[in-house]
Amino acid sequence: MNREKKLKKPVASFILLTNIIFLPLFFLVGAAHMLGFPTWVVDVMFCITAWSSTIAFAVLFKKIYPGQSFIQFVKEKFKHKLKFSVIFTAITIQALIFLLILFIVSNNSEVDSIFTVSSWGMLIYFFFKNLLSGPLGEELGWRGFAQIELQKKHSPLKASIIIGFWWGIWHLPIWFTTGLAGIDFIKYILFFMIAIMSTKIVMTAFYNLNQNLIIPIIIHQFFNFFIGLINGNLLDLIMYNAIFYLVIAVVIIIINPKKVLYGNVR
């Protein structure tokens, strides 16, 4: 009986296939927007593109883990009981960052409203649109698989830096939709990568404290949600997030609670 060959470089294959799936889907979203499709249609299409990593992982699963069940793998990522202290600490940190940025922007803004939403209905829609177009579609592949797979060979911190870099590069097509050019565009890329990689380290630390994929989903959700709520200059917003999340990442690296970033992580 022939056994199915196991991928020699599963993480690299996952990253490559994720980009191969993402790029054409992203261009379809752009085409739909240019052709004047309804906003809700464009939003749905954009949500689908965010699931490219999950699709790629599902396609490669049998070659990465021969003989295992994809459904069972997913269930394993949510089996550990959530710890209130972990969730509370993570959300509190992000809420404080949000309030600090809100305070800074409000003191330097001349716009009528500091928020991008004007009603509870819009707020709820924005929250769930962000949830579907980011955290739910990305975390299984990037965190649930790639991060954990690299942690078999590297420390969680090193694995976070590697995955954080490639996760950031995966967003490359989106950079060109910002409307920025020249030095501002270069600054945006730099701050974006710092913010992404710092957030990735924070995600890894809190995930390893609880071993439940809900944790990085929550952190990812509030990162996207909070930055999208503030009506401010895009470059300034990404810069503030980069600075504050980098500070938190450095503090966590120094403290290394329960050796979650470098040490004996199960």
Rank of each mutant, 00 (worst) to 15 (best):
Asn130Ile: 14
Ser113Arg: 11
Phe145Tyr: 15
Arg143Tyr: 12
Phe145Pro: 02
Ser118Lys: 15
Trp142Gly: 04
Lys129Trp: 15
Met122Ile: 09
Arg143Cys: 10
Glu138Gly: 08
Leu150Met: 15
Leu150Lys: 06
Ile114Val: 13
Trp120Asp: 01
Ser133Cys: 08
Ile124Ala: 11
Trp142Asn: 03
Thr116Asp: 00
Lys129Ser: 13
Asp112Lys: 12
Ser113Ala: 11
Val111Asp: 11
Asn130Cys: 13
Phe127Asn: 03
Gly121Ile: 04
Trp142Pro: 03
Phe126Pro: 02
Ile148Asn: 14
Val117Gln: 04
Glu138Phe: 08
Ile148Lys: 14
Leu131Ile: 11
Phe128Cys: 10
Ile148His: 12
Gly141Asn: 05
Ile114Phe: 00
Gly137Glu: 11
Ser118Tyr: 13
Met122His: 12
Leu132Asn: 08
Arg143Pro: 09
Pro135Val: 03
Arg143Met: 12
Tyr125His: 12
Leu131Ser: 07
Phe115Asn: 00
Glu138Tyr: 06
Tyr125Asp: 09
Leu132Lys: 06
Gly144Asn: 06
Glu138Ala: 07
Leu136Ile: 13
Gly141Trp: 10
Phe145Leu: 09
Gln147Gly: 04
Gly137Ile: 05
Thr116Ala: 03
Glu149Ile: 14
Met122Ala: 15
Leu140Pro: 02
Ala146Tyr: 09
Glu139Trp: 00
Trp120Ile: 05
Ser133Phe: 00
Ile114Asp: 01
Leu131Gln: 07
Trp142Asp: 05
Val111Ala: 10
Ser119Leu: 04
Ser119Thr: 15
Ser119Lys: 00
Leu150Glu: 13
Gly144Cys: 10
Phe115Arg: 01
Asn130Met: 14
Thr116Ser: 13
Glu138Leu: 06
Glu138Gln: 08
Val117Ser: 04
Lys129Cys: 10
Phe126Val: 08
Trp120Leu: 08
Val111Arg: 10
Glu149Arg: 15
Val111Gln: 10
